[in-house]
Design a protein around this nucleic acid. Sequence first.
DNA 1: ACCTGAACACCGTTCAAGT
DNA 2: ACCTGAACACCGTTCAAGT
Lengths: 205, 205
Amino acid sequence: MPRPKVPLLSADRIADAALELVDSGRPFGVNALARALGVTPSSLYNHVSGRDEIIELIRGRIAAQYLPDLPEGTWDDVVASTMRAQRRMYAEHPNAIPLIVGKTITDPFTIASYDNLATGLLGAGFPEGEVLTVVAILDSFALGFGLDLASPDDIWQPQGPTQTLGRLLAGAERGAARSDRAFEEGLELLLDSLRLRLSRLREDD
Amino acid sequence: MPRPKVPLLSADRIADAALELVDSGRPFGVNALARALGVTPSSLYNHVSGRDEIIELIRGRIAAQYLPDLPEGTWDDVVASTMRAQRRMYAEHPNAIPLIVGKTITDPFTIASYDNLATGLLGAGFPEGEVLTVVAILDSFALGFGLDLASPDDIWQPQGPTQTLGRLLAGAERGAARSDRAFEEGLELLLDSLRLRLSRLREDD
DNA sequence: ACCTGAACACCGTTCAAGT
DNA sequence: ACCTGAACACCGTTCAAGT
């Protein structure tokens, strides 16, 4: 069946199927994706440049869904809303995290979200030279918690006796509940300390 | 050359070569590792169960080097020292991060390090039900910054015009310097807010 | 006990051939 | 323009055969 009159594939259809494959929990790959699309692996190369571009399509798909509405309001509202949106995004597509992590971000929605964050921080009074650092901190935080979600239920598995860890682990919440609570508390901690930093900066004026 | 009198391989030798391969920046894999060891891939299976175990060996190797001395002192010294040790570990083996991330931790040195952290926080006055959450926050933080280091120089690459981000990126520090500064500042923020949290907890007494 | 070599079921990518 | 099929150089893992 070479060259059908109406194309079987498109970047859009590939993106949809790729995200579906990732979310299904089956291992992601070009060949597996082709199988899911009922097509030969080489067919995909008529529409995308390869594995990496498909992964960027996945990032774009997710970001378009969770990050299109740029939060407004006070700077700490912007920070909190942006972080929570990222959190929701990661929470509902945890299997995408290991794929998109550590790759340069070009997706417009994701860029716009960070841009909005930077603008908010700058407006709040954080100095030019510090805004990007704060954004990087927030990014690391979101990413770390994303990975926390994508991790196995038992992150720590002591093989021998411990002073404290083993006992706490035995009585601890598991999985998503633990991770959610840690995220909210961590977010509060970060906001508190950013407020502190800001008030110190204002004292210096 | 079957069954040499003195074995060519051992878990130790495999761990050494694996870390070396990872640090070299060449793609890590069982076959590539076997080549580096001058041996057939199947030979490795006489000493390790497979790829995953080799990766745990790498984690152990790194942890044994950076986390053997458990920091003492005030709780915030313990937190800062532990975070900085992890940071140094990631900084000097950035290519190991994508491999070890998201796998259950069994390595004794790593466990001992987190155990020490938990014990310190508990002693400082953080309630039982909260210690693990704080440890998870610190872990997420360290991991996020580890990934930040392993990431390409340009994490954000806007394709179009931006309000703030593009301008800040143009004047920003690059690579390790930026990441180091962000880490130190982020650590200060976290410590500040943990101190704040602790003082509030003490007020309630 | 510890290595090799063949074999298997996978990868991601390229490219000539077909319409 | 868009698909197939063959081909290539890789993966990780198993297992019989050799000493």
